[in-house]
Amino acid sequence: MAAKNSNLSKFKRSRQIWAYIFIMPQAIVFLGLSLYPIIMSYVYSLYSWDGASPLTNFIGFDNYIELFQTSRFWSALLATVIYMIGTTALGVGSSLLLAIVLNANNMKGKAFYRTIYFIPVIATTAIIGVIMKNIFGIDGTVNQLLQYIGLVDQPISWLNTSTLAMLLLILIGTWKNLGINMIYWLSGLQAIPTDLYESAQLDGAGFWKTLFHITLPLLKPILVVILLLSVVSGMNAFDLVKTFTNGNPYHTTETLDLYVFNYAFGGGLTGATTRMGYASAAGVMLGMFTLLISGIFGLISVYTRRKINKETG
């Protein structure tokens, strides 16, 4: 008995050692190549540094203080939050609708539709921005079409009206990521056992009843995942904003990521010198906000789940 036990624990220990060995490569790659740059951008944020001189001018939290006093920083934060909420609210719901339709068992051409709706996901975002800018330009395809049909006399200035520009940004951002959300939902739907549907049908439940009483409640766990991923990607909107509106009109669509870029590489507004230290501080703040918002989401989901558990149990 004792021998067996020691054999077992030997077996167990060897498994544990192997587990550590298995984790090692990923840990080395991560610690070696990802952690250092992250730490360094925190360090840079404490310096007055143009990105090219030696790192000598330590200024403590001055970059942060300047940041908090700059209204353009706060308006960038606001734009980021609006974009994040817009894309999340729009994307999560509509992708579920699409997934439900494309999950129907007797639906023909599922693979075809899935591919079609997935194409925006695989395209490079920066190129999407360039294309959309041309399509929605004053002389662009959309305006020409509207004028041809006679819906408008004068072309609409899509990109230079702040509400329209932000709306388009949200729509395009949603369009770009809808495919991946659709896949998440589809996988959630396929995880629902088919016998649940069968028994529901035997009970005479129709499409809508099944949807609200079986499908949706079972999708709650994946909803949390999709929400979190949407929030994180919404907070880090850069490529599309840079190439589509570039912050126009008058910084109303400038997101925090673009703000960081403008100071780190574009020399702020003036195109004069780069301010890597200041940009790093803005980057750190963006990270903090993302953490904060994700944290709130996480808490809400834990709280509601507990409440549901209490009610049902």
Binding site: D50, E66, T70, R72, S157, N160, T161, S162, N248, P249, Y250, H251, G267, G268, L269, T270, A272, T273, T274, R275, Y278
Partner: peptide, 17 residues
């Protein structure tokens, strides 16, 4: 120059928009 965040050009653009 690094500390400036306004330029006449961007104010003009904002005014026109």
């Amino acid at each position: 120059q690094g500390g400036l965040s306004y330029s006449a050009g961007s104010i003009l653009a904002g005014y026109m928009q």
